[in-house]
Design a binder for these strands. Structure first.
Lengths: 235, 235
DNA sequence: GATTAAAACGAACGTTCGTGCTATATAACC
DNA sequence: GGTTATATAGCACGAACGTTCGTTTTAATC
C-alpha cells in the first residue's frame, strides 16, 4: 500500500508517466508470477509481453529482487481488495468469518490470478530460499493467518462460537482447507474441491456454533452422503 | 519402481557400475529438488555437488526432462517406502487410515526430504506448465488421494466408520490438513502445525467413528481449549 | 519554441543454462 | 592380456539470464 502511493509527482501535482507504466508492469507481473513463479518471472519475458525493452523495464526496479518485492506488494494489494475488503462488509462474528473463507475460495475459483492463489504459489516456491522476498511473503501469510484467527476470536466474543475452541487451531484448519482446494484446482482442474472446502468449513462452523451463531450461517444444503455417479464431474 | 529395477546387467548378472552412480545422482537430486524445485535442480549444480562432470551426469538421462522424470520416480519410491509401506502394516480399517495420515506427517516432520514433502513442492511448481513431468506428478498425487479414499472406504466396510461419510470428501480434507501442516512448517518453521493437523484429523475420525472404530484410535489427550501463554512456542 | 529532467531504448557485458560432440578412462569378457 | 562395451570427462555451442552503459525519445516547464 505504501508503494502504491509513493508516486513521483510534478510541480502541478500530476502523476508522472513512469508511475503508470510501473503499475502496468506490476499488473502483468502479478499474473505471470502466479502462473510461472517469481523466479520464472523473467525480465525479458515480462518486457516482451508488454512490448517494451528489458532495460526500460529494469530501470523501474533496480534489480530482479526489487521487481519481485514490488510484485509481492502488488499482489498483496489485490488480495486485500478482493478478499479482505469484501469480508469486512459482513457483520462481525460468524458472518465475517464465513465470508472471509468463502471469498477466499471465490478469489481462487474466479481466476483473480492466472495461476491460482499468488501467495500459495509464492510461499511454496520461496520457503527454501532465505532473503527479503521470502521474509516478506512469510510476513504476509502470517498477517493473513492472524486475520483469520482474529475473525474466529471475534465470533467467540460475539457469542456465535463456542468459547472453548482454539482460535489459532481453527484458523490453521480453515487455511489448510483453502490451500487444499487451491491445490486440487491447480493440479487437477477439479472445481468440486471448492465445494468440498466450503462443506468442510461450514460443517466445522456448525459443530462449534452456539444457537445465536447457527442462524447466521448459510442453510445446510443436503446430507453428507457418498454420491452415486453424479453427472457432470470432471475426470 | 519400474525405473529402479531396469538395471543394465552384464552376462554374469552383476550390476553395471553406471547404475550405482545413477542411483547416487537421483538420491542427491531428490533432496535438491525438494528444496530448490525441479527447475532449480540444475545439471551443473547437481554435478558439482557430486563432484562429477556435467556431461557425465547428463549422459545418464539424455535430457533435463529425463532427469526430472527420473527424479520424480525416485521420490515416489521414497514416498512409498516411508509412508505407504508402514501404513500397510497397520490392520485394515481405522487403524490403517489413521496410520496413513500419521506417517505422512511424520515423513515431513522427520525431514525425509530436505524441503518437506517432495510432491507438495513439485505440484505447486509444475501445476501451471503442461508436459510429461506435470502429468506424472498429477498422476502420482491422484494415486495418493485414491489410496487415502480407499482407506476411508475400508474403514467404513469394516464397520469402524459411519457409512454416510463421503470417502472422497474425507480424503480431500485429510490431504488438505497434511499439506497445510507441510506449508506451515516449511514457511514458518512451525512444528506445532503437525500437532494441529493430527488433532484435526483425529477429531474428525472420532466424530464419524462407530463404537467399534473408536476403540482403535489413539486416546484423546486433552480438551480442545485456547491455550493461555504456553511456554516454548516458536516465534 | 527552447530547456531540461524523466523515461525508454539498444547494444553489450559476463554467467549460467541445457545440450551436443569427441576423446579418454574403466571394467567386464574372451 | 587384449578386446570391447560402457561410463565419464573435456570442450564448445547457442540461448537466455540479470545487469550496465550511453544514447535517444518523450513530455512537462520556462
Amino acid at each position: 500500500m505504501s508503494t502504491a502511493s509513493e508516486q513521483t509527482t510534478t510541480a502541478t501535482g500530476r502523476k508522472a508517466r513512469g508511475e503508470r507504466t510501473r503499475q502496468a508492469i506490476l499488473e502483468a507481473a502479478v499474473h505471470l508470477a502466479s502462473a510461472e513463479g517469481l523466479e520464472g518471472l523473467t525480465i525479458g519475458r515480462l518486457a516482451s509481453e508488454l512490448s517494451m525493452s528489458k532495460s526500460g523495464l529494469f530501470a523501474h526496479f533496480g534489480s530482479k529482487e526489487g521487481l519481485q518485492l514490488a510484485t509481492v506488494e502488488a499482489a498483496r494489494g489485490v488480495f486485500i481488495r478482493e478478499v479482505i475488503g469484501p469480508a469486512f462488509e459482513a457483520e462481525r462474528g460468524s458472518p465475517r468469518l464465513w465470508k472471509l473463507c468463502d471469498t477466499w475460495l471465490g478469489y481462487v475459483e474466479g481466476g483473480v490470478f492466472r495461476g491460482g492463489c499468488f501467495f500459495a504459489a509464492a510461499s511454496a516456491e520461496f520457503d527454501g530460499r532465505p532473503g527479503p522476498v521470502r521474509d516478506r511473503i512469510a510476513a504476509i501469510m502470517k498477517e493473513w493467518l492472524k486475520a483469520l484467527g482474529r475473525a474466529v476470536s471475534e465470533a467467540q466474543r460475539t457469542g456465535h462460537l463456542d468459547q472453548d475452541v482454539d482460535a489459532a487451531q481453527l484458523a490453521f484448519e480453515f487455511n489448510a482447507l483453502e490451500l487444499g482446494a487451491n491445490w486440487a484446482f491447480q493440479l487437477h482442474g477439479d472445481r468440486r474441491a471448492f465445494a468440498r472446502a466450503r462443506a468442510a468449513i461450514l460443517e466445522r462452523l456448525r459443530l462449534y456454533s452456539k444457537p445465536a451463531g447457527l442462524r447466521l450461517l448459510p442453510a445446510v444444503k443436503e446430507k453428507r452422503r457418498a454420491p452415486r455417479a453424479r453427472r457432470g464431474n470432471r475426470q
